[in-house]
Design a protein around this nucleic acid. Structure first.
Lengths: 243, 243
DNA sequence: TAAATAAATTGACGATGGTCAAATCAAACA
DNA sequence: TGTTTGATTTGACCATCGTCAATTTATTTA
């Protein structure tokens, strides 16, 4: 009677645990049927590439378990890590909606299970259900707002301030919610990836971490961060922030 | 019998010269009627602010004549110039589609005529015509791709390489089309604004321009740039670019 | 046209942060 | 457990770029 298996995840879109957190929450049963038919599940191990910059768009990816990093690399091999994609997030929709090839690559950072929905299915759903389009419009528009904010931050803030901000964002998204007081948190990323999220080098990342420790702002043990007082991070980020 | 006046521009959406270049090109006559009713024309002088960061979204702006700059400023007064908006472009749609307040400000850089379409009208059109939503999806998605590219460039390229890239983009968008050979072009921006488009200071901008001149890459006379060979700019931007 | 205001440039200086190489640490594996 | 491999840290160095102040050049305005 078990219609889903903890080792294999959901068998279809109807029983999918993460569906309510995706854009597909606006679909009716008939549309879900269509979605389910256009769907294939794939699994990736850490380091495996889901798509490459320049590849033609294969569809939209729904992350069920694991974590994916979206990277953009230039001709000289320099790269930035743009996004972390976690369960309930959709991946690859930008290229599909823009009608372009991928302009970034996606790589599994943990063992990851993903459903791929092919392009014709997504196009058909978008053409028939305006609410789905509006959902995506909201998502892409908010994402654009965040990207623009990042452009400002990278242009005006120091590496240290950008790192403080990154910590706040990571804790807010993936950590326990606690506005103030001491916080412990496990970073989901290597030093190298932390660096490429804020547009710097692993060496500068190391030195920034060391400096923050000596200043008593945070303590780092491997990927564990201990922050005595979250508010100090906010002050790092906004020098003239006051209560 | 003249249904439009060169000094006042189009009187309505039906006779609007720039409509075909906007998202509204997918609307039928009934929808145009609605659009026209939700529309108010406004004029701005250089320096006048159209909307401020933090303001609630007032609608979507259609630029008929002139030029608008979209800026983002932080608490310390540092700012970046994110976009130049020219006739046929739409403005302010990001906030509207994200359902957020404005996260950037818009300011006229030249005498500018703009039609403002109120939020309910845009919402209504989006809800009824899926093609309009798809148009906006494409626009926002491409914009997001460009923003992500900018994040990579700002993180990995020098001020000089970023400026070379900016020149190429400006010439491509607002200049005569010529892939190779000498090009003359009038920059639409002050040194200060050029600087804030690539996330640097006016001082560094000046020095970069001076260096480029002494290297024979380009000559600057006020806002006029003369580039003996466009290809050299491409090489500045992609060090290992070859034909 | 002269005076006033703003924009752009130049100079001097220093800090931030990138690069390269070496050392240390951690983790995977035989 | 010893070994190998990769990740992280540290050191030394210096180029790029930002900051501040002063000057020159344009642009307005009276």
């Amino acid at each position: 009677m078990a219609d889903q298996n903890p080792d294999q995840g959901s068998l279809n879109c109807f029983t999918c645990q993460t569906r309510d957190r995706t854009e597909w929450c606006v679909l009716d049963d008939a549309e879900l049927q269509l979605l389910n038919k256009g769907r294939v599940t794939k699994e990736y191990l850490p380091g495996e590439v889901i798509f490459h910059e320049g590849d033609p768009c294969r569809g939209v990816f729904c992350l069920e378990t694991g974590m994916v990093g979206v990277r953009k690399t230039d001709a000289d091999g320099n790269s930035v890590l743009l996004y972390l994609v976690t369960p309930g997030d959709t991946l690859g929709y930008r290229a599909m909606l823009a009608g372009e090839d991928y302009r970034a690559s996606a790589e599994a950072l943990e063992p990851t299970r993903i459903c791929v929905i092919d392009v014709p299915t997504v196009r058909s759903l978008l053409g028939h259900n305006p609410a789905l389009g509006l959902r995506y419009l909201k998502r892409v528009s908010m994402s654009l707002g965040n990207a623009e904010e990042k452009i400002l931050h990278n242009a005006t803030l120091s590496v240290r301030a950008r790192f403080a901000h990154l910590l706040l964002v990571l804790i807010d998204k993936y950590g326990e919610k606690s506005t103030n007081g001491p916080t412990e948190f496990e970073l989901p990323l290597s030093r190298h990836d932390l660096a490429s999220m804020i547009g710097t080098t692993p060496e500068s990342m190391s030195r920034t971490i060391k400096k923050m420790e000596s200043d008593g702002v945070a303590r780092f043990t491997g990927r564990i961060v201990y922050i005595p007082e979250i508010e100090t991070l906010v002050q790092e980020f906004e020098p003239d922030h006051f209560v």
